[in-house]
Design a protein around this nucleic acid. Structure first.
Length: 389
DNA sequence: CGAGTTTGACCCGCGC
DNA sequence: GCGCGGGTCAAACTCG
C-alpha cells in the first residue's frame, strides 16, 4: 500500500512536470491532461481507486491484480516519459553546445586578439576535423564545424550589449565547469606552460599515493583558471595536469598553446560528450582526474604514437570512444560536411599566415611535427574514409 | 618583510 | 541523516 502511495506521488509530480512542459511548449492551447497518455493513466488510476468493491471476499485478489496492472501501466508511462526526457535533454544539449561554441568563436574573433584567435581557431579546426571524420559518422546532427564556414558567427555580431554579457557569462560558466586533463611525461615541455601559478592546496586523493596539487593562475587579476597536477599512480614519470576555466588575460606563447589546446578540447566536449577520450593518437585510456561530476576531456600525450601519428604522413582517423551520451547511428555525414572539410583544408593550405600559426601551434604541441600542409593533404586524400561511394 | 608553500580544518556534494 | 572524499580556505611556516 505504501508502494502504491509512493507511485501515486511520483505520478503526481510527473503529471505536474508534464503539464508545465506542455504549457511551455503550447502556449496558445490549454493543455488537456485527458488527451495525453499520462493523463489517461492517471484518470484510470483515479477511477480504479473510486470503484467500490463488488465482492468482499474477492477484494484482496482484485486489489492485488489491479495494483499489478497499475504498476505495469506506471512502468510503461515511466519508460515513455524517460524516453521523452532523454530526447529533450539531448536536443537541448546539442543546441546549447552549438550556442556556446559560437559564443566562444565570437569571443576569440574580437579585435585586438587576432593572434590568439587565429591560434585557437586552428586548434579548434584540427579537433573538429576529428569530429567530422569520426564522431559525425555517429552523430551527424551535431555538426558544429559548419558554423565556422557558414558564417553563423556573423549573424550574432549585432546582438545587444546586454545579451552579450549574458552570453559571456553562460560561456564562462560552461568553461568553468568543463575540464581538460593532459596526461604527459614529466620531462615533456608541455608540463611547463610558463603561466604563473600559485599553489593553494595539496591533497592525497584516494587510489593514488602521490599528492594532488592545486594551483590558481596568478597572471591576471582574478583569473578563474585553476589546474591540478598529480603524478600517475601507475607511472610516476607521467604527470596528469587538469585545467579548468578560461584565462581572462593575454598569455605567453607556450601558455597560449596549452590554453588553445584545452580550449579546442573543450569545444570537442561541447559536441555532446560528457567525457571524451582521444584514443591511440592523442590518448590511450580514459582517465577521471577526480570523482567530480564535471565533464572531462583527456588528452593523453604519453603514448609513443601520439607524436608520430600527427607528425608523420600517416594521419590515421582516430579511434574515438565516447562516454556519457547515448550513441546514435544515423548514417554517414552529408556531402555538405565533406565539402566543408575540403574548403577549410584549402583555406589553410592557401593562407600562409594561417598555415604559419598552425605550424607553430603544432610545433609547440609536438616538437618534431612537420608542417600542416602534409596533414591537410592527408585529410583531403582520406575523404574516402567515410565516403559512401 | 613579502611572496609563495604547507597543511590541517572546513565546506559541500554525493552515495548509501 | 550520515559518512566519505574532493576541493578550498587560511593560518603557520619557509625562503630569498
Amino acid at each position: 500500500m505504501e508502494g502504491k502511495v509512493a507511485l501515486k506521488k511520483m505520478l503526481q509530480v510527473q503529471k505536474r512536470a508534464y503539464v508545465n512542459t506542455t504549457d511551455a511548449l503550447n502556449q496558445t492551447e490549454e493543455p488537456s491532461i485527458k488527451n495525453t497518455t499520462l493523463g489517461s493513466t492517471l484518470l484510470s488510476l483515479s477511477l480504479n481507486n473510486l470503484e467500490p468493491p463488488q465482492n468482499h471476499e474477492q477484494q484482496p485478489l482484485n486489489k492485488l491484480s489491479s495494483l499489478q496492472i497499475e504498476i505495469e501501466e506506471v512502468k510503461k508511462e515511466n519508460q515513455n516519459l524517460r524516453h521523452m526526457l532523454n530526447e529533450i535533454t539531448e536536443h537541448y544539449a546539442a543546441l546549447q553546445n552549438q550556442f556556446l561554441l559560437v559564443m566562444q568563436q565570437k569571443k576569440l574573433s574580437s579585435p585586438g586578439n587576432n593572434e590568439d584567435a587565429k591560434a585557437s581557431l586552428t586548434y579548434n579546426f584540427l579537433f573538429f576535423l576529428y569530429i567530422e571524420k569520426n564522431i559525425a559518422r555517429k552523430k551527424p546532427d551535431i555538426c558544429i564545424f559548419s558554423y565556422y564556414v557558414e558564417g553563423e558567427i556573423n549573424n550574432l555580431q549585432g546582438t545587444s550589449q546586454e545579451a552579450k554579457i549574458i552570453e559571456d557569462q553562460a560561456f564562462e560558466a560552461s568553461c568553468r565547469k568543463a575540464r581538460v586533463s593532459v596526461k604527459a611525461r614529466a620531462e615533456s615541455s608541455l608540463m611547463g606552460d610558463e603561466c604563473q601559478w600559485r599553489k593553494y592546496g595539496q591533497k592525497i586523493a584516494k587510489g593514488n599515493p602521490c599528492p594532488r596539487a592545486y594551483y590558481r593562475c596568478n597572471m591576471g587579476t582574478a583569473c578563474p583558471v585553476r589546474k591540478q597536477v598529480q603524478r600517475c599512480a601507475e607511472d610516476e614519470n607521467i604527470m596528469i595536469t587538469t585545467y579548468e576555466g578560461n584565462h581572462n588575460h593575454s598569455l605567453p606563447p607556450p601558455a597560449r598553446s596549452m590554453a588553445c589546446t584545452t580550449s579546442a578540447a573543450l569545444s570537442m566536449f561541447l559536441s555532446g560528450s560528457t567525457t571524451t577520450t582521444f584514443s591511440n593518437s592523442l590518448s590511450t585510456s580514459t582517465y577521471y582526474p577526480s570523482a567530480s561530476s564535471c565533464p572531462t576531456i583527456t588528452l593523453d600525450l604519453t603514448h609513443p604514437s601520439s607524436a608520430s601519428a600527427i607528425s608523420s604522413n600517416h594521419f590515421q582517423p582516430f579511434p574515438l570512444s565516447l562516454h556519457g551520451y547515448p550513441q546514435q547511428s544515423k548514417g554517414l555525414p552529408s556531402k555538405k560536411n565533406l565539402d566543408l572539410v575540403d574548403v577549410v583544408c584549402a583555406a589553410i593550405t592557401t593562407d600562409p599566415s594561417l598555415k604559419a600559426v598552425l605550424d607553430s601551434a603544432i610545433s609547440s604541441l609536438i616538437p618534431d611535427s612537420h608542417n600542416i600542409h602534409n596533414h591537410c593533404s592527408q585529410l583531403s586524400s582520406s575523404r574516402s574514409y567515410y565516403d559512401p561511394s
